[in-house]
Simulated scan of single mutants.
Amino acid sequence: MEKWTSLTNTYKKRQQAYVMIKVIDILLLVVSAFLLLYIFILNRDTLLQMILIIFIIASAAIFLIYHYVATKKQALAQTTAIEKLVLLNEQGQEVQEWSLTDETSLLIGKKTVDYQPEIDLSHAEYAALINTEHALLNCVDGIWYVEDIDSVNGVGIRKPYRHLTQKLKQENPCAIGYGDILYIANTKIIAK
């Protein structure tokens, strides 16, 4: 129960941080709009206007370069074949791995008398949060997809070029690529 409370608090803190980031983004947008209005309409100082134009162009160039690099990383991750899944502990150390060679479909969950998942997380650190049938991996045309099977604590995926984890909607498959981290409840599995 104590672990569950801790995980719930962590989730709430992440949600609050996400909302705070959105609020800051909106405030920055409003301040920027007023600044542009002041500099280009109310103020006639051409030096200040030129400095702002140079700043805007430099910012746009940095954004485009960042976006280009992220897109290239995403394309590389999607074209690199996944050969295995690796279970990570809280320190990021590899604990167990499962080969995906010659596989087309794998069930992720906990082993019981009635269920025998191919990826058994019964001994993972957060096994109490994992359903017996938690998620499903399917390979279609060489691309692996993960799908949440109506689990209580959900499935998340974090791309190697992103900072936020995307929570999957139930029964809505999501493609996974090389370097992606799957969150089965709070258990981390990396695709390699």
Rank of each mutant, 00 (worst) to 15 (best):
M1I: 12
T5M: 12
T5G: 10
T8G: 05
N9E: 11
T10I: 11
K12V: 04
K13M: 11
K13S: 12
Q16A: 13
M20W: 00
I21P: 00
V23R: 13
I26K: 13
I26T: 12
L27G: 12
L28C: 09
L28T: 06
L28N: 14
S32G: 09
L35T: 14
L36N: 13
Y38T: 13
F40Y: 11
N43C: 08
T46V: 14
L47P: 07
I51Q: 15
I57D: 10
A58F: 15
A60D: 10
I62V: 15
F63A: 05
L64W: 06
H67R: 11
Y68P: 01
K72Y: 07
K73Q: 14
K73L: 14
L76K: 13
L76Y: 07
L76D: 13
A77H: 10
T80M: 03
A81K: 12
E83K: 14
L85N: 06
L87D: 04
L87V: 05
L87G: 03
L87N: 02
L88Y: 05
E90H: 01
Q91L: 13
Q91K: 15
E94T: 06
Q96C: 01
E97C: 09
L106T: 03
L106M: 12
I108F: 01
K111L: 10
T112K: 03
T112A: 03
V113I: 13
V113M: 12
E118S: 10
E118V: 06
D120C: 02
S122R: 05
E125F: 10
E125C: 05
A128W: 02
L129N: 04
L129Y: 06
N131F: 02
E133V: 03
L136A: 01
N138T: 14
N138Q: 14
N138G: 01
V140Y: 00
D141I: 04
D141P: 06
G142H: 07
V146L: 03
D148Q: 03
I149E: 07
S151M: 04
N153H: 09
V155H: 04
Y161T: 08
R162F: 08
R162S: 11
L164K: 04
T165K: 05
Q166K: 13
L168T: 07
Q170N: 05
Q170G: 03
E171Y: 08
P173G: 02
I176P: 05
G177K: 05
G177R: 06
G177M: 04
Y178G: 04
G179V: 07
D180Q: 04
I184P: 01
A185V: 02
A185C: 03
N186D: 12
A191K: 07
A191I: 09
